[in-house]
């Protein structure tokens, strides 16, 4: 049975066929620059406005992904995508263009692994032969939607994160490849009372800790079974919290944990406590981490995309921030992509 434990799916014949990534200038100046397929040297990506720029990024990521997977859009069974904007406009308009049967998803920054988990379950269950999963985020569209106008000179605290400009796409299928998707754990929504939208690391840590410990319990595994357990965008604030939370629950992940938000930027870049956004976990996973799996530097990784289900209206109504985390296990099969 593919469902194991309380909230985990196990997959036996889902493989990653190809990935594609596109990023903006700040990500290109980061340490993972060489692992991205397409790099823009300015935030507009040659488009008229920020929303079009984000759409361009997602289209680029998908183009690269399909090209590398030698796949045409009409050959893809279903397209699962989402982003951070209201009505997930980026995903909707990209789907308008590619004409692949489409399911729009919103899980804030956890959408990256939500789309992979759902895609893998559709393939495992026989409801699709291949799935295209994509997410995007853009610093300027996120600033406008969740915070202030881009050029507004308000001071942000050190706990703030910096939305990653980029998009990632992954093509999943049954055909054996270098990377197998073996399990995913679906998270519960957690809200431990953090109300500060400039401190999403603290808000999301309980959700991440719960998804990670649930995965260990469901699959009867321990941190030693993984080469890397990577969270999406807990940043420099949330990462130590999640490590301590798991330690208290009896799981020592200190040696194997890292955070995509900390990996994507150099420490001297002005990004506050680290990167965030759907694209943060997506471009790091689909670029750098997949390369490491193919090279054999990593064998088994657990990617836990964390999402703050933040709404500016709810925050103004004095509500706290609900958060969620979804995890997917990627394993190297020793083959080529």
């Amino acid at each position: 049975m593919p469902k194991i434990g309380t909230q985990t799916w196990s997959f036996s014949n889902v493989f990653l066929q190809s990935t594609g990534t596109a990023v903006g200038p700040d990500e290109a100046n980061g340490p993972l620059s060489s692992t991205f397929d397409k790099v823009y040297d300015e935030l507009h990506c040659g488009e008229e406005n920020w929303e079009l720029a984000e759409r361009k990024l997602m289209e680029d990521a998908i183009d690269f992904c399909l090209k590398k997977g030698a796949m045409q859009p009409y050959g893809v069974d279903f397209f699962l995508a989402g982003d951070l904007l209201n009505q997930i406009v980026t995903a909707n308009y990209v789907a308008r263009g590619n004409k692949i049967p489409f399911l729009g998803l919103f899980g804030a920054c956890s959408t990256s692994m939500e789309s992979v988990a759902l895609g893998a379950s559709l393939i495992e269950g026989g409801f699709a032969d291949n799935i295209l999963a994509a997410v995007s985020s853009h610093n300027a569209t996120a600033e406008r939607q969740f915070r202030y106008p881009t050029e507004y000179g308000g001071q942000k605290p050190g706990t703030a994160t910096y939305t990653v400009t980029g998009a990632g796409a992954a093509l999943l299928g049954r055909q054996s490849s270098g990377i197998q998707i073996t399990a995913s754990t679906i998270g519960k929504v957690f809200d431990w009372g953090i109300k500060d939208p400039f401190d999403m690391g603290s808000a999301m840590a309980p959700a991440a800790a719960d998804t990670i410990s649930a995965h260990f319990k469901d699959t009867n595994s321990s941190p030693d079974d993984f080469d890397l357990i990577v969270t999406g965008d807990l940043s420099a604030v949330g990462s130590p919290i999640v490590k301590d939370m798991l330690l208290e629950k009896g799981y020592d992940v200190r040696d194997v944990h890292n955070d995509c938000g900390l990996m994507i930027f150099n420490s001297d870049q002005p990004v506050f406590s680290g990167g965030s956004g759907c694209a943060c976990s997506a471009v790091v996973t689909y670029g750098h981490l997949m390369e490491e799996l193919i090279k054999g530097n990593l064998n088994k990784i657990f990617v836990v995309a964390t999402g703050a289900l933040l709404s500016p209206v709810m925050i103004q109504q004095k509500e706290s921030i609900p958060t969620i985390a979804h995890g997917v296990v990627f394993e190297s099969t020793g083959g080529k992509m």
Binding site: W192, S202, P206, V237
Partner: peptide, 21 residues
Amino acid sequence: MNKQINDKNEYKNNVKSYQPK
């Protein structure tokens, strides 16, 4: 390390030590 970081009710206070002042 904070004691009982998994305590939901005290979470807001307990995480303060992780946040840059």
